[in-house]
Structures are given as C-alpha cells and as structure tokens.
Computed example of a mutant assay.
Amino acid sequence: MNLANKLTLLRVILVPFFAFFMLAGDIVPYSYLWAAVIFAVASITDTADGKIARKYNMVTNFGKFLDPLADKVLVVTALICFVELGWASAWVTAIIVAREFVVSGIRLIAAGSEKKTVIAASIWGKLKTASTMVAICVIIILHILVDFGAVTAETFPVQIISDILMYISCILTTVSGIKYLWDYREVLKTDA
C-alpha cells in the first residue's frame, strides 16, 4: 500500500475517534476541541493524499474508490453527530446524505456502463463540499468557544449561525445533486 492510500486509510480510521469526542462532551473535558483536532488532521490527509498520489504517480483504483468514500464517511459522521447534539436539523442532514448516495450511485452506474464514464466533480459539487466542510468547522469552533466560556449560547447566536451555514450547504447540495441528475440523465436511461 502506497503513502497516498495509507493517508486515505488513516482518514477512515480517524472517523470513530472523531465521533467519540463529538459525543463525549459529558465525560471528556474539551471533547469538541479534540474532535476539531481530529477533523483537522483528517482534512489535511484529504488534501495530502491527492497531491502525493498525483505528484508521485501513486494513483490507484483502491485510492480512487476509498478517497471519496472516506470523505463521505467523515462528513456524514459529523452531520449525524450534529443531529444527535441538536446542532443541526435532521431534515437538512437527510438531504445532504441522500444527495451523497444518489451521486455515488450515478457514478457507479456511469463507471459500470459500456463507456466506462468517469464523472469528475463539477463546480457545484466542489462548492457543496467546501460549504459543508466550512459549516462543519465553524459549527465545531462555535461550540468550542461555548465550551471554553468565550461566548454563551444565550448571548451569541450560535444556533442561528449554525442553521444558516447548514441551510447554505443544503441548498448547494440540492443544486449540485439536481445538476448531476440532469447532466448524467443519459447514463441513467441507457442502464434502465
């Protein structure tokens, strides 16, 4: 296994630790800070694995499969933890998660078609990913500030800011999902 794939695998391994610290607020002091550190390390591995794979010609089918899967597992885990903690609405999370399943399904169908079509990320997909990652980071940071007593949820609009960020992510997720369905409708027709 090459270095790029090891970094991707590390991101998957970090997910349960991230989830533990996100949900261990009652038993682990500053658990959100630990979760943020783990999320940051996982995000760095996401950037590093791709750069290393391309620069040193380490691109593998395993990496092509595992890298987007690792990203989705990390993001979905964060969003499910947010719902559990009351930081995000379940319906917003459901839309974001459903889009990930739909687009992954379209990619699988396209890759398995006669043309072996590889679907690259669109600008809308990249905006969706960026907005979701920013929302996750900002929401965790806001709760770290509450945890440290720098702000209080009563005097600072933590939930309003969190909701706005999640709504923006949800809108971009919906738009990118609809665009994928529209752009690759022919792939779906030929395999129907």
Results as ranks from 00 to 15, higher is better:
residue 90 A to Y: 10
residue 150 A to F: 11
residue 53 A to I: 08
residue 148 F to D: 09
residue 8 T to V: 08
residue 144 I to L: 03
residue 110 A to I: 04
residue 79 L to S: 00
residue 158 V to C: 08
residue 97 V to K: 09
residue 122 S to A: 04
residue 132 T to N: 01
residue 117 T to C: 07
residue 106 I to M: 12
residue 65 F to S: 05
residue 144 I to N: 09
residue 52 I to T: 12
residue 191 D to S: 08
residue 35 A to W: 06
residue 79 L to D: 00
residue 154 E to M: 13
residue 150 A to W: 15
residue 186 E to Y: 14
residue 125 G to A: 04
residue 22 M to I: 04
residue 146 V to S: 07
residue 82 F to S: 00
residue 18 F to K: 03
residue 23 L to A: 04
residue 71 D to M: 10
residue 133 M to Q: 12
residue 50 G to H: 11
residue 154 E to I: 03
residue 51 K to N: 11
residue 175 V to L: 10
residue 26 D to K: 09
residue 144 I to S: 05
residue 67 D to P: 02
residue 57 N to P: 02
residue 49 D to G: 13
residue 80 I to H: 07
residue 27 I to F: 06
residue 150 A to G: 00
residue 11 R to M: 05
residue 163 D to M: 06
residue 70 A to M: 14
residue 146 V to C: 01
residue 94 A to Y: 12
residue 59 V to D: 11
residue 74 L to C: 10
residue 140 I to V: 15
residue 80 I to V: 15
residue 79 L to F: 03
residue 52 I to F: 05
residue 38 I to F: 14
residue 136 I to H: 02
residue 92 V to Q: 15
residue 47 T to Y: 14
residue 136 I to M: 05
residue 170 C to K: 00
residue 182 W to L: 15
residue 182 W to I: 14
residue 173 T to D: 00
residue 19 A to R: 11
residue 125 G to W: 10
residue 10 L to W: 13
residue 134 V to R: 05
residue 3 L to R: 14
residue 90 A to R: 05
residue 141 I to P: 00
residue 161 I to E: 01
residue 70 A to D: 01
residue 126 K to W: 06
residue 140 I to Q: 13
residue 72 K to G: 00
residue 115 K to L: 05
residue 69 L to I: 02
residue 18 F to E: 07
residue 21 F to V: 02
residue 64 K to Q: 00
residue 60 T to E: 10
residue 90 A to T: 05
residue 106 I to S: 01
residue 48 A to L: 15
residue 176 S to G: 03
residue 83 V to I: 12
residue 34 W to K: 08
residue 167 Y to R: 10
residue 11 R to E: 04
residue 54 R to A: 14
residue 42 A to Q: 06
residue 4 A to E: 07
residue 185 R to L: 07
residue 130 A to R: 03
residue 135 A to I: 12
residue 3 L to F: 15
residue 176 S to V: 01
residue 123 I to S: 05
residue 83 V to P: 11
residue 14 L to A: 14
residue 75 V to S: 01
residue 60 T to H: 13
residue 123 I to M: 03
residue 165 L to V: 10
residue 29 P to K: 13
residue 9 L to P: 14
residue 179 K to W: 02
residue 171 I to K: 01
residue 136 I to S: 01
residue 113 S to L: 01
residue 43 S to A: 08
residue 97 V to T: 10
residue 163 D to A: 15
residue 67 D to F: 05
residue 109 I to S: 02
residue 29 P to Q: 13
residue 88 A to Q: 04
residue 131 S to E: 09
residue 4 A to T: 07
residue 126 K to A: 02
residue 114 E to Y: 07
residue 113 S to E: 01
residue 116 K to Q: 10
residue 41 V to L: 02
residue 63 G to S: 07
residue 140 I to Y: 15
residue 49 D to M: 13
residue 166 M to R: 02
